[in-house]
Amino acid sequence: DLSITPEMLIKHPLQNRWAMWFFKSDKARDWCDNLRLVTTFDTVEDFWALYNHIQKASKLPSGCDYSVFKDGIQPKWEDDQNKRGGRWLINLNKQQRHTDLDNFWLETLLCLIGEAFDEQSDDICGAVVSIRTKGDKLGLWTRDCNRPDSIMKIGKTLKERLKIPPKIPLGYQAHTDAIVKTGSTVKNRYQV
């Protein structure tokens, strides 16, 4: 008496096709040559097959990034879909690599593929997790930094889903501000 239902045989399609990228810092090569497309996926099952197969973010060496973007958008500021945009940025301290990083990254991915941002989903470009000695970073990229209502809703949802305490502020930076920064800090356009 096999109880395999048709539902179990059909993969669950995602609203968007997503591309996973891997970046490994190698100063001997151009920045672009260090960025590689891993694969694309458009079902829940294919996402898990990929996620379960690769290293956890916390186990990557310093200087590496994982990026997951909508298919057709490169994880670069210069991409047409990104150049007017910005990112919600989470800076993690060194302890948080062991306590929060992997959870934050997975939760962010589940928000992307599950379309957790509702009507704001169209504003989402992708997300990046960066492993750095001075402190890891997680960014959620949106396509237009001049859409305050949408950006604020996205920020609130992200903060809620990651269970970041209300008293810890989360900032949104425009990519253009980050490119021309003179000091070590980039001003926040928005905050939740």
Binding site: I4, M8, L9, H12, P13, L14, Q15, V44, E45, W48, A49, Y51, N52, E107, L110, I113, G114, E115, A116, D118, S121, R161
Partner: peptide, 20 residues
């Protein structure tokens, strides 16, 4: 409508082996 999946449903599908 959008194909939306909540986190619990997505997490449940993680544990189903690929052969299904």
């Amino acid at each position: 409508g959008k194909r939306q999946y909540d986190r619990e449903f997505l997490l449940m599908l993680q544990s189903i082996p690929e052969s299904c």
